[in-house]
Design a binder for these strands. Sequence first.
DNA 1: TTGACAAATGCGACAAAGTCGCATATTATA
DNA 2: TATAATATGCGACTTTGTCGCATTTGTCAA
Lengths: 142, 142
Amino acid sequence: MEQHSPSKKIKSILADRKAYTTPHRQAIVNLLAQSKPMSAQDIISALKKADINRATVYRELKFLKELGLIEELQLPGRKKYYEIQKHHHHHLICTRCHTIKQLELPRLVCKLLADITYINNCTITNHNLEFSGLCNRCQKYL
Amino acid sequence: MEQHSPSKKIKSILADRKAYTTPHRQAIVNLLAQSKPMSAQDIISALKKADINRATVYRELKFLKELGLIEELQLPGRKKYYEIQKHHHHHLICTRCHTIKQLELPRLVCKLLADITYINNCTITNHNLEFSGLCNRCQKYL
DNA sequence: TTGACAAATGCGACAAAGTCGCATATTATA
DNA sequence: TATAATATGCGACTTTGTCGCATTTGTCAA
């Protein structure tokens, strides 16, 4: 497998936490950096040449999530999906072809969250806004 | 267990689908009608006197969901939660006490969905908007 | 460059959530 | 009340994820 060396930024984040830059860790980060959101099993399959233990993959995903390097998506269905942490955004999972697309959201959404906090007198630390339906390719066929 | 007889409406929905009005089915619907969102395991435990098989509960939840009588919530975490289908709404799960509260959302949200569909040229059939954070009771303590 | 120590890994067993096929039981209705 | 469709129990199985522990690997300072 081709191993891109991790960016300076990632290396320093790892160093700050006294975390090592291991081949497995790099492989997972690189894989996610180049692809759509993947489930743990997707990652295990994709890296089967590297022969990474299942438990290691799960541990790694948990760890990278804590570090804020990747994000965990709670899409409809049983599995969690992971993707490289970019700017915050949301997804559509197609009920026909099961591809996951990133959605463009009107700016309004941020304001909305503030309103919700105010109306309900609570402290929102996290939200999960995901969609399912038909992607633009599949909606032509039905 | 006290068995309220199901409403006419529910009976007719069941009849339309040639589904039977069985004690187990009634027990599950009645239970959900009287409580906060519950996981499958919560339901199994709550109905342990009725001694309903696990598989039956899962099958029933799936079926009631298809009928539109209950809704499946995808909250952060591994389990799914179920609640009686009321008007569409959203939840906050408290990261401290884990209670699930229904949130009041500004009307804006509906319009937002239409905008998202338009901007992204897709067909949204379902969305999942759930929150985690601190409920109004717990936010006093931290 | 190497040795020591912390961090990462593999392994295998375990757990929780959910599914399936099949034999049996229950329900609606003619 | 007989019958045909539906629901249920049972148990094995799958998937997703976790854990403890022994071993290996990465880092850093001497």
